[in-house]
Design a protein around this nucleic acid. Sequence first.
DNA 1: CTGTTAGCGCGTTCAC
DNA 2: GTGAACGCGCTAACAG
Lengths: 356, 356
Amino acid sequence: MGITMKDIARLAGVSVNTVSRALNGKPEIDEKTRQRILEIAREHSYSPNSLAASLASKKTRTVGLIVPDICDPFYAQQARGVEDMARARGYTVILINTDEDPKTELKAVDTLRSKRVDGMLLTSVFPGIDHVVLLQKQHIPFVLLNRRLTSLDTDYVVNDNIKGAYEATRHLIRLGHTRIAHITGPERITSVRERLAGYTKAIQEAGLSIQDDLVFTGESLKPQSGEVLARRALSVNPRPTAIFAFCDTLAMGAYATAKEMGLMVPEDLAIVGYDDIPFAACFEVPLTTVAQPSYEMGRTACKILLDRIESGGNDQEQEGVPKGQVVFDARLVIRKSCGAYLGQERRRQNLAVIKG
Amino acid sequence: MGITMKDIARLAGVSVNTVSRALNGKPEIDEKTRQRILEIAREHSYSPNSLAASLASKKTRTVGLIVPDICDPFYAQQARGVEDMARARGYTVILINTDEDPKTELKAVDTLRSKRVDGMLLTSVFPGIDHVVLLQKQHIPFVLLNRRLTSLDTDYVVNDNIKGAYEATRHLIRLGHTRIAHITGPERITSVRERLAGYTKAIQEAGLSIQDDLVFTGESLKPQSGEVLARRALSVNPRPTAIFAFCDTLAMGAYATAKEMGLMVPEDLAIVGYDDIPFAACFEVPLTTVAQPSYEMGRTACKILLDRIESGGNDQEQEGVPKGQVVFDARLVIRKSCGAYLGQERRRQNLAVIKG
DNA sequence: CTGTTAGCGCGTTCAC
DNA sequence: GTGAACGCGCTAACAG
């Protein structure tokens, strides 16, 4: 196959070691011989075998990224943030999709461990905390993205889910809704629980009766799941007048169902999502949603990971580095689907009528 | 760090080799000793060092995937297809974004080469064919996704760009448009050239004058670029009444510009995209577009790559394996943005008026 | 069925 | 400034 250091050494009439020094930019080497070696390397389009290098140095300059589904624009953006940061610092990222499946995720962590990645970014559910404990015990750096473990002190990057969900729900309450359904994902996901908490808090604060029967949990976060959950939600009697979805893709599905059932959004049904994916503003009825800075979150999580990796594995230094625990703000973005502009538009229409 | 085969060997009182056999499921080994070894491995949560394995076996069970931007749902879906297929067959994928930047892509190929990936999926532009030639010369398996090289015989998976663009344009012509702008990406991208060809073919066939002044080329394929290009297109005099965009994200931008300029879509301006990303149907004005099976394309490309990898690198076998050159069909999906349903709806409205 | 012996390609001591 | 020697953890012949 390719040419190796040994070959170059032979060609240049030096030792392998000298070649190594030349290629790795080490200072203690004569500039002339370095140039000669570099030239030979280039001529033969030498490619360093990073496997061998990693085996010897115990560093792979590779990080693992586990996501539920890269097709979800929210995760895609986070992934992009991760990869950009990684690439900028000379790292490479291995991507694995899990569809929220615990078994797949378990295998993913195993695979990454076997590939000896320098660290991992965990974006998905965990069946338990077993993996994480294992990673900690083996001193494999990792950062949790979008989730955090109450029982464990780890690095994480999340957004303020409770606040985001709280504000979304309160917004709907202000608009006069009293029966607000919440469609969401599996409860093992931390953010699912947190947003549910924010939702509940707003409901209780408003003195509305607790509406356990208005919370609908599905396995997936894809639009199809949103359709199913919305159908369930909208068949409750009396019918809820608003749906707060765990994420925008779920909201998308809810919208499809509403349309299919002949319900107007927001007139008959208000919908609020979460994430503010780039397409939310372009929907048939632009989606009111809670924005989180997905790209930035990805970048930040990766930065924390790389800093941890490069701070060296030794525990002393670890002590000095404060735990990277970042909570990004959640911000309500009001568009059309919640009906906030309904009054306004009606007013405008009335004016037009009067004028005409 | 972790426990190694040597440790297990010592613990089990056997040789390293025996441990290797047990762990790798080789047949020539006593079932009892295998179980004993497996037990010890599990106890110590042994993780095989795939770096060492790869170094020795010259196989990494890793493929590289180079995309312009994973945030583009089209590429995200392809990536998902790739990763699903890879994972199903025990491979792992390294993801790199290039933003269509030739230099970044060059570095990406280099990085992947250095990591000794078993093969690569190339989804992005190439500054020239130099990389590809190098890959060929070094017998590194690769498959081109969404592009093909006329000068080189390689595996590729594409969709019928010429046909797709042709049908999209002809559709607009049928609807009565005579001034159809085309907004697109850099001409070094094969698919850009192919779709331009399909567009031109339809224009010429219809006997419309060739409209070089109606083709607008930008560097990126993101919505922002679509906005800029549409602004340029819509400032031509006489103003085009339709825009055929290279892809849905560009179409998204065009729509934003139209809205900003106070133009109604499709009444004042028809828009047709390409790709049929999952959100195209949910747009404010559902997008007419050309669908390509992105997920399937990703899967197929990866399958071809893995088959090639596993067919062994030897040239004899290579001869037996037919080149994987797959062209997926392109299918026009008619929604609202092209105005095809305009007449119908007007008719319906008129009926309503009459009835009322 | 099992152990021995060589590497895989590179980093990292050490001497010189 | 340069070279020799060893080891990273594993696979792959070969013997036995």
